[in-house]
């Protein structure tokens, strides 16, 4: 077993696996960025990369519960964030300052998130190989 664990650890640092962070800064509707970032996130997960997704500024609204998009005639794609777990994408971060400025709390989101300060998020960004924002 010890050998198997060692091999697993080795795989984690495999040079084919990079750390990708997707930075969501925009509201879910009004522009297409949120939807097309989500498409990139899903593909990156399918490539078995180490994926983090951060939500800041109005991006925190992307994962707010209870979205009703009928009046703007757009597809409500917020349920798709719940599918990320199926791709082993579980590193979801919400910037505390953005969340609090918008009167939101962790229980308002459709997925479990880790709430981090702007400074902590900066540290996480510094650890990434690839950062793509939208």
């Amino acid at each position: 077993m010890a050998e198997a664990e060692t091999l697993d650890d080795f795989d984690e640092t495999d040079e084919d696996v990079k750390r990708f962070m997707f930075v969501n800064r925009k509201a879910p509707y009004g522009t297409i960025y949120a939807l097309e970032v989500l498409e990139m996130v899903l593909i990156t997960g399918a490539f078995d990369q180490d994926v983090s997704v951060a939500f800041l500024d109005d991006g925190v609204f992307q994962i707010k519960k209870g979205q009703d998009t009928k009046a703007v005639n757009m597809k409500n794609f917020s349920p798709t964030y719940r599918a990320l777990e199926g791709y082993d994408i579980e590193k979801l971060y919400v910037e505390r300052e953005s969340m609090e400025a918008r009167g939101l709390a962790p229980e308002d989101f459709v997925v479990p998130v880790k709430v981090v300060s702007a400074a902590e998020l900066a540290d996480l960004m510094a650890e990434q190989d690839v950062i793509i924002s939208g």
């Binding site: 084919d16 990079k18 990708f20 498409e39 990139m40 593909i43 990156t44 399918a46 490539f47 990369q49 190989d129 690839v130």
Partner: peptide
Amino acid sequence: GLGQLIEAAM
């Protein structure tokens, strides 16, 4: 496809 982007990043 988008896979070409991820491949390029990798």
